[in-house]
Design a binder for these strands. Structure first.
Lengths: 189, 189
DNA sequence: GCATCATACTCAAAAAACTGACTAGTCACA
DNA sequence: TGTGACTAGTCAGTTTTTTGAGTATGATGC
């Protein structure tokens, strides 16, 4: 049960609706997990049943009503237990790696394209994360913010996301270049 | 169905038994996917049913018999199709990130320990991957190997694994240091 | 001489994640 | 006046991954 703790951790930052969480756990923003809306609504329902989060109805005009959730004491205790438990090792799991693994045996054209698209996507995310980091730390410099700031959790996971995306971008570009050179070398013969 | 293609890609390198694949897909070696033995046996059975791999019995003395598998033409075609299809985006999914996200709200002691253990594990894997890369490229230098070598797929995915582990190690050490400093600063007051 | 490790697999089940289809009102744009 | 996008969800179902428990044999170490 991993999403469970990811949701609890996200809700430590304040009250959110399922919809808001879903946006955070979608594409860019969630730097420590990824999930679809349906999963989040289901998980929130389970967490509420277990008393780890509390929801309250917020009536809205000109918009559907929503339920905002926050972590209970029991939820905080559960996170505490989770933090103490040994973590599972983490692995990269990526379609593109599988494709590159077989890239010298099968057609490389589409793979090169995909590598370049990925590199561009990674570059965009690097921009986004950079902007998020600047916003979070505000006017103070990073060392100061990390030492005295509150709620640095999100900042720290963002840093990992940033490094990951940079590594991803660099690798994609390099591998694309390597595969292209090999194509060119093969064409010469 | 991602493991499916990962298995096909791994079998492009030659004939392997389920047991051998399982070892490769376990801890260190598989730089592009991770899976447990049971999954691999199941996947191989499915692939054989679908005609994407072929198995042959190898009778052994002093060891249980085994079945070696290789990719069929249909399997190669399936990989080709897979390579052309748009890849799914890849995400980091890591318990430790979740813990760090909430690290400024709950007890940080165990998390710091885990970060340092992870950093050590990453360092060990960096060593291992470095050795694997040296073995693969042999006496020639990297640029030459990448341009003219055969079967560079495994080398390229190893490079990604190496960069990932380096990023992981650096991040773990840095975050552990940050959390420690904050603890110290808090203790002073 | 006994325990443990390595090879080589199998079966069953639970948990986690993903996919697709659907409701229903508001707002902006052309 | 309708077309699509945004808010805010729900329901049902499949696929994928993980977990746990076995089987059987030979080799290795103390």
């Amino acid at each position: 049960m991993a999403l469970k703790h990811a949701v609890l951790a996200a809700l430590l930052d304040g009250e959110y609706s399922g919809y808001q969480l879903a946006k955070a756990f979608d594409v860019g923003v969630a730097n420590f997990w990824h999930a679809l809306p349906q999963q989040l609504y289901a998980e929130l329902a389970k967490l509420e049943q277990d008393g780890l989060v509390e929801g309250r109805q917020v009536v809205q005009e000109s918009r559907p009503n929503k339920r905002l959730f926050r972590v209970t004491d029991a939820g905080r205790a559960e996170l505490e237990r989770f933090a103490e438990a040994p973590p599972k090792p983490s692995f990269i799991r990526d379609d593109l790696l599988v494709k590159v693994q077989s890239a010298d045996r099968i057609g490389t054209g589409p793979v090169i394209e995909q590598l370049e698209e990925r590199a561009a996507a990674a570059a965009a995310k690097i921009e986004l994360l950079g902007a998020m980091l600047r916003t979070m730390r505000g006017p103070v410099d990073e060392a100061e913010y990390l030492l005295r700031g509150e709620r640095i959790g999100g900042y720290l996971t963002c840093l990992r996301g940033l490094a990951f995306e940079q590594g991803h971008r660099d690798w994609c570009l390099r591998i694309a270049a390597v595969l292209k050179e090999r194509q060119a070398a093969r064409a010469e013969r």
